[in-house]
Design a protein around this nucleic acid. Structure first.
Lengths: 338, 338
DNA sequence: GACTGGCACTTGACCAGGGAGAGTGCCAGC
DNA sequence: GCTGGCACTCTCCCTGGTCAAGTGCCAGTC
């Protein structure tokens, strides 16, 4: 028995099952693929593939469907990379180029990704902790209110308004601004946060309450878990395509979307390359019939955050992977230009 | 035949159907409600109610379910207002008080509303066009870049970074800032936008390219459709409770959520009070088994935007209305404090 | 006149039984 | 090692029959 053909059979099973959503039998497999052998031979191969755990039968008299292990093999060794069509590339480009700021980039990319893949798309906002400080502004508002603005290397703008215990002089504000700028610009946010703490003592004791208040707020902003975990989700309407299997396919995904923490874990660490997690590999019992395709994106070689799609394990992996990869590249480029 | 009792019967039917999700017959109605008459009498009342279009039979041998008209009557005349439990009030309060800025208020309120109602919650961001300018800031960044910040009366902070054709002097920046401030602070955004346009000519011809660039961007921000239509959605996982009727109950709602425009129309104009749209009243064919409960929220008497929930027509109207109303009041208060 | 009890009628839900069809595993033969 | 053939095993789907829920209507009662 040739090993090559057996893998061809596995590939054919995955492709057919993804296309038809129905268990595939030996005969219908031969109708669609020229494998050059008879159904009986295919059946032997199938039996072997089943022994090895790549495929399974829902019930005795049905065709085979791929297991998670089968999909994994397909993704790792059998899938031929499907390049995006020029039209798709253009779609991404035109859709993203109109964006006016980082928020807009994220929202547009989540839309385009959902549209391209017909799946639920997730885009994490550029991480704060992995960015550096590009600019810091301290602006006096009316009364004792102060506006703090932080602009990061990825173009994200975070702002906070605080009320100080007393109205600061313009000179003090200017002084604080310039010293903070000097201490933090160019630093990564976590380090900038540390430097800020050291800075307080360099001010006159009288000014310290005000300085402390400002510095503390900035530090919070720098290391803010909440804003570091911001996520945009789109294409939930595509859930209906997952098939009508409500409890196993749709409900768990909706629940995961509600729980941002789960979603973040799903996207996973920004490792750099394209990552595929299939079924139980997601680490969530309830998502056993779901697969996640994700990719880090960033400027230059620096991973900033992750984006990806969530869909049924029976998805078109080559197409999805191509789309996720392409969008990640474009988004990275957009943020670099910014 | 007493009219009062007939309305009691309608109320009982709505309440039972909402509780059980099953057509209610004359016998089970008597089991749950002390109406003091026999099933046959109820049947007569039911026949009359059906003639008038308040209830209907899914099929001949089934019980009755309310029609849209029936729900409408229930909401308008029969529902007794259900006050929130102290625990629920506390939940809203503790959940919302931790918010640090407007974004946070909106996101938290969408969460709490979804949780209270077990439905899909929608919260519109405070409208820009209905707010006034509280503060405007123009800050020079590195090179020819300028940061523009607008703070509105509702506490929303909008910012934009633009690249000018040449680097402006500090003096010009200061001049622009003070004149813009004078022209716009306290104005409603659309009017502020008009005033800005008139302002350009007061500058020296040499400075006009820079001023025009800044003013145009600010005007765009003031009248930006996109940011005026921002919306937060939560509780999509609650869709699973709508029952398993996929095509009529879940799919259309998911699709509406994707289309922000539809969603905005659903929430409707901020009329001030609590609004309920039932079935076809939503104006969307596909949402015929869906109802929307919405309420404007704002500071003082000034409506700023709208929030609400989307659920099946067979929802607990009194509870939902109470929750929506309460959250709207709290959110308004939060923004007023801001 | 309004209410009630009784009764015949309708109809979807549920269950069992019986092909039909798809697909398999296995075996003997090439 | 591949192939054709055959018996076997399932699920799917259709049919028919029973059941229970609920109705409408009618005659009788307060």
């Amino acid at each position: 028995m040739s090993d090559d053909r057996r893998l061809d059979v596995l590939r054919a099973i995955v492709e057919d099952y993804v296309a038809t959503q129905e268990p595939v039998g030996s005969r219908s497999l031969l109708d669609r693929h020229q494998l050059g052998v008879s159904p009986a031979t295919i059946r032997n191969d199938m039996a072997a593939l089943e022994d090895e755990g790549y495929i399974m039968q829902p019930h005795t008299s049905a065709g085979r469907i791929p297991t998670d292990k089968g999909y994994r093999m397909f993704v790792d060794r059998l899938a031929t990379v499907k390049a995006l069509s020029p039209a798709e590339r253009r779609a991404i480009e035109t859709f993203l180029t109109g964006a006016v700021d980082v928020d807009d980039v994220v929202q547009r990319s989540v839309r385009v990704l959902a549209q391209l893949t017909n799946q639920v798309a997730i885009v994490q906002y550029p991480s704060l902790t992995r960015s550096t400080v590009r600019h810091i502004e301290v602006v006096a508002l009316e009364g004792a209110r102060v506006l703090l603005v932080v602009i990061t290397s990825s173009g994200r703008v975070e702002q906070r308004i605080i009320e100080l215990i007393q109205t600061p002089t313009d000179q003090l504000i200017g002084d604080i601004r310039s010293r903070i700028t000097q201490a933090t610009v160019g630093q990564r946010l976590p380090e900038a946060s540390l430097r800020l703490a050291d800075m307080i003592e360099t001010f006159a004791p009288n000014d310290r309450p005000i300085v402390t208040s400002i510095v503390t707020t900035l530090s919070q902003t720098f290391t803010n878990e909440r804003s570091d975990e911001r996520i945009a989700v789109g294409g939930t309407a595509n859930l209906v395509r997952f098939g009508s299997d409500f409890d196993t396919a749709i409900k768990p995904v909706l629940e995961a979307i509600e729980e941002q923490v789960v979603l973040l874990k799903l996207l996973g660490e920004a490792t750099g390359g394209l990552t595929v997690r299939i079924g139980t590999e997601t680490g969530h019992e309830s998502l056993s019939s779901t697969a996640v395709v994700s990719s880090a994106y960033g400027l230059d070689d620096q991973a900033l955050a992750t984006l990806g799609t969530v869909g049924p394990t029976r998805m078109d992996y080559p197409a999805t992977m191509a789309a996720v990869g392409a969008v990640a590249r474009y988004v990275g480029r957009m943020l670099a230009d910014n």
